[in-house]
Amino acid sequence: MRGYFKNKKTGFLHDFKFNIIMIFLIIFFALPVFYLASSAFMTRIEIWQGMFFPAKMQWSNIYTAMVEYNMFHYFKNSLFFTVIIVSSNLFFCSLAGYALAKFNFPGKKLIFSLVLVSMMIPPVILIVPLFMEVRAMGLLNTPWAMIIPWFIDPFGIFLMRQSMVDISEEHLNAARIEGANEFWIFLRIAIPFSLPALVALTLYRFLYVWNDLFWPLLVVGGDKWRTLPVAITKFDAQYFEATELKMATSFVAALPILIILIVFSKKVFSAMSRTGGLKY
């Protein structure tokens, strides 16, 4: 992977050839990103005329959607839940990953096979019974319903386990002889050791939780805890005509991810190919 982004000496014709191919591909693949960014600043008329660029940047779209239609409130809710769920995932996944990597205890094999199986079963499949369970627990329409079923993530456990297997046993034992307690060892040796995996896990979970639509749609009905994806689908159904506001809100919803991608694209790329390589 190292040196992957470094461009070795290549001829002009070589670059030219690939750039032509890429530009053709970009016309299709970048279309949604481009159009989202561009139509968020158009007037409604411009969108309905099928324009490519706004004649004048309509910054007021963003203001109207965020403030007058209260989307900023939902944005904050999304951010709140994402931060809580991702941090909880980071902590508990690394804890369980550490246990599976470095300890022997009865039932370890069984837990690991459960990790593997549940990793492959898509969460959408279990959404009906899970909904009824959360309802029976009396958590519906509370923020807890959003957080509790997702406090840990099977793929995250797997990722952390694969990374922590490589911690040297001598290192841990040395700390034990020094009299460090197990939790301290976990925090000060295991966690720093697997920072790259933690970065990958953060990204992976952030993308998932930030974009999740169905679970929040089902479990939080009220306005108070509604997240941005749910708010956008509701807005879409309610204000059929307000295309420019829908696009502006969707653009704002995509903005955190687009910014992360622009700033850290190398990190995201290596984290993604890392998770892919680990998953099989």
């Binding site: 970009i26 693949f29 970048a30 279309l31 949604p32 990103v33 159009y35 989202l36 139509s39 993308l207 930030w210 974009n211 639509l213 941005l228 994806p229 956008i232 689908t233 879409d236 829908k246 696009m247 969707s250 653009f251 919803a253 995509a254 991810i257 687009l258 991608l261 622009i262 694209s265 995201v268 790329f269 993604m272």
Partner: peptide, 17 residues
Amino acid sequence: TIFMMTCLMGLIPSTMA
């Protein structure tokens, strides 16, 4: 980076677009 934007941008933004 552009390709990653398309696929990671998220369900709602990309479907709305």
